[in-house]
Design a protein around this nucleic acid. Structure first.
Lengths: 260, 260
DNA sequence: TAGTGGTCTAGACCACGCT
DNA sequence: GCGTGGTCTAGACCACTAG
């Protein structure tokens, strides 16, 4: 009573050039497709903001059904690597958008709508990575890093004071002058100038009190309580590409987090 | 060249008893199925920890394909209302598990693995809801609430001091004695005793310094910086059922958050 | 009107957990 | 061996966008 198989047996081909050995670790087809699409995103075959090929087109290219491509893109969409728009297509995510502006910023005003920050660069230079920064950036102590110190104000109230470290090798052409003149969101700059996309980040939060220097810059009394937020941002392949140490003033703002 | 339709036209039947009027707001079938399953969860037809009917069984019950049920359960699983286990079935989520223990707790030790807290109840009583609490619980000022104050210690170090407010009408039979003798996780108690499942929560975080009372209880110097975490927890239907105001000591711990 | 993502179906086989 | 969730396919129709 056996019926003729209408589907192919499970294999690991998926239209790759170099035939991969049939690994014992099983991986679903849609995961392989997802990896292939991710590689194209990473390589810049489709740039941020651009339209990627339609699902049918990708299905043809990879010799799989549309449903399999769909499931792959579903996950990429859930991870914010791409954005679906019904009737139009699927687009590569970009930090050059109003909505993306606040993607990683959890600090919200206690009352009213979020405002756009005014950025002021306090310091910008190249230096050798301290041990702790190097460890978090997965580089060697003493390697070149770009260092930035800046202030973000909302409605003319100094609210965020932060220091950023970026690996010098990745952002080789990032000049101090370029940073000083730039006013927009940092991740948009890194995206267009270096093709480095921030995909996800991890934040560690502690409570501290302001020392004299910090208090002066934030125009607060000494010992004012502040949120200390240390962020590590990652690009494709879970590669860390930014360490950011921020102080958040929470007198009129709060850090908001949704738990599911 | 028209082919015979193999699928039903879009309707809003979905095996409901009282025939709903075909509303102008279109809702996909799987969303309707999801709502039906959610209702069964809420009503207690399947209790926390229990196995729910298999996908095929639900498909038969609702007169839809397995794929549609699957997509509904996919979303419920993503929202942590149910847990899938391949080869075994789909289970109703419960707070009576080691993994669920830390589901809403973002405070992690700086080094080492998370430990289970020792809970000490400092105060437990019924009182009339203050205005701000009432507003957050969506009840009237002066309505009865259960008030709890407790301390959580990790490795004998006082780390979390918190106050909880629960609506008196929902947790009517919750006696002070019951709370004082109970040692396990709060949400597990509320789940088994009152059938109230905590589904999601929102946290607002600020930095503060310890006043004398707080400092004494936490065995810290006056003015030690602390995280002030205000949480509102919700059950089915986005109904708020808990307000929790906590102070986190971040000398050896940090609040961890993943950004996507 | 054509093209895209979104929904829905029916059926097959695979991986897993238990008996 | 059987039942469960997990993967994959092929094909149809619906909802939305734009030329």
């Amino acid at each position: 009573m056996s019926s003729a198989p209408t589907t192919l047996p499970n294999n690991n081909a998926a239209a790759t050039a170099g035939g991969a050995t049939p690994s014992p670790t099983f991986s679903p087809l849609y995961q392989q497709i997802k990896a292939l699409i991710t590689r194209s995103l990473q390589s810049g075959e489709w740039r941020p903001g651009e339209l990627i090929p339609s699902e049918v087109e990708l299905a043809n290219r990879f010799k799989v059904s549309q449903g399999t491509v769909r499931k792959a893109i579903d996950e990429l969409s859930a991870e914010n690597l791409v954005v679906r728009r019904q009737g139009k297509g699927t687009f590569v995510a970009t930090h050059h958008e109003a909505r993306a502006q606040f993607r990683f910023l959890r600090l919200k005003p206690d009352v009213g709508e979020p405002l756009y920050p005014d950025n002021t660069i306090i310091d910008a230079k190249r230096l050798r990575a301290p041990a702790d920064i190097a460890r978090q950036l997965d580089i060697k102590t003493g390697d070149s890093v770009v260092f930035l110190k800046r202030m973000q104000s909302f409605d003319n109230a100094p609210t965020i004071l932060e220091e950023l470290w970026l690996p010098g090798t990745i952002f080789k052409g990032l000049s101090v002058e370029r940073v000083l003149q730039y006013k927009g969101p940092m991740y948009a700059l890194l995206e267009t100038e270096f093709g480095t996309q921030m995909i996800r980040a991890v934040e560690n939060i502690k409570a501290v009190v302001a020392d004299q220097v910090t208090a002066d810059l934030l125009q607060l009394p000494l010992n004012t309580p502040l949120l200390s937020v240390t962020r590590v941002s990652f690009t494709y392949g879970d590669k860390p590409v930014e360490v950011r140490r921020s102080y958040y003033v929470t007198n009129n703002h709060h850090y908001r987090n949704d738990l599911n």
